[in-house]
Each structure stands twice: as structure tokens, then as C-alpha cells.
Amino acid sequence: MKKKKKLLTFPSIIVLTVFAILPLIIMLVYSFQSDSGSSGVTLENYTNFFLKSVYLKLTYRTIINSLAVTIISLIISYPLAYFMAKKFKGLKNIVMILILIPFFTNQLVRVYSWLIFLQDGGVLNSFLQSVGLIEGSLGILFTQGAVVIGLVHAFFPYMVITIYLALERVDNSLLEASSSLGASKVRTFFQVVLPLSMPGVVTGIMIVFVPCLGTFVEPRILGGVNGTVIGTVIEDQFFEIYGWNFGAAIAFVLFAMVIISMTGLSRIGRRYDNE
């Protein structure tokens, strides 16, 4: 009986092994082969990547962009999550539902909505002109700024949720205990609330920063020619340039960045884990 039940887990594992693990291994193998047709194992794709300043610059830009998105998301999310967990009462559920709803709308639709909102002559442009804040065109679309805005929009709700859940777990009696021991609200926040919500903050950072590294649709649409990041370079290798092996190598560099940031962040997260 027990043995038979164990078999139930196998189909999922087989699907994952065949369609995720195996392809990743094959991709790793491809990344060590040359695009020029010569056979045999070569490091040329990786040396190409790491020796050309243009790729290093793109890597740097990708990381900076992702960091910017993460920090802005944090600035928006922490206070919001804090207010929801500690200040709002009945309102809390409504705000939570409103934050969750966009998860269920198509991601491309959301990117597109920023495209038409930010475009020169678009609604934001007309609005800012009519209140006299700017003259002429806005010029924000097709910049890194537009990409960051679009990505923050796509990812910050995840962060609100992880931080909110961490704050919910901070028992109000701890705040009262701190107050009864003579701590002001500000000190209570920095000495009790913030440290105890750090696991949620770290998870939130992970859930925003890591996917940002691998985006390619948002930078392409909102950044235009200025939106080139690692993701779009990889896409080009497959659809425009047909340098598949080189593409595979870049994808692995990206993969390595993802793994490094995940392990780093979960290390930090574990330090705050009191459970």
C-alpha cells in the first residue's frame, strides 16, 4: 500500500526531470560548443562573453536595473505592508484583494498599458502639459526609466505580500511589551518590528530581484533600443543572429547570477529566521 502510494509522486518528478533538468543539461553542453561549426568542446562562448566590454556592460546594467526595481519596490511595499498589517482593520482585506487582482491580468497587457500611458502625446503627457508641469513631449518611453517603472509595477505586489505576511506574524503583544519597557514607537519599530519582519523582506527581495534579471519582454517593449539587457541579448541570439551556442552560454551566465543571488539571499534570510 505504502509503496503503491509512493508511485503517485513519480509522474511529476519524471515530467520535471525530462522537460526541465535534462534540457538544462543539454543547454550546458551546447554552451561549450562553437557556433562556427567546428566540433569539440570549447570555452570560446564564455571567453567571448567575459572579454567583450559590451557584454560586461550589459550585465552590469541588468544588475543595476534589477537593483533599482528591487529598491523602489521595497520603498513602496514596506510602508504599505506595515499599514495593512498594523493600522488598517476592515480596510485590510479590500486593499489586499486590490493588490492581488492585477496578478490575474495578463502581464503583456500590463506592459502594454504602460506603453500607451507613457508614450509621447499619451495620457500622462497630456495631463502634465495641461497642469503646466512640462512643455512639449515627455520623452520617458524607450528609456531605462520606463523599463524600471514597468518592472516595479509588475513585481512590487509580490513584495507587499511577503512583507505583509511577515509583519502579520509579529504579535502585537511584542509591541506592547516593548512599549511597557519604555521604548518609543520609533525604537520599537527599529528594534522589534523591523528585525522580525526581515525574513519577509528578504523573501520579497528574492521574489523581485531574481525574476528581474531574466526579463526580456518588458525591456524590449518599454525600453526600445535603450532597453537592451542580458535577456534581450539572449533572445536576439536565438531569433535574429542564430548564435545558439553563444546564446546558451549567456543563458548559463544568467542562470549562474540567479543561483548566486538566490543562495546569497537565502543565507541572509536564514540569519533572521527565529522559528
Partner: peptide
């Protein structure tokens, strides 16, 4: 406090 409310960290 009933729950002691010790700071877990």
C-alpha cells in the same frame, strides 16, 4: 504577558 511576548530575535 499571557504569551510572555519575549522578543524571539
Amino acid at each position: 504577558f499571557q504569551s510572555y511576548a519575549l522578543f524571539p530575535h
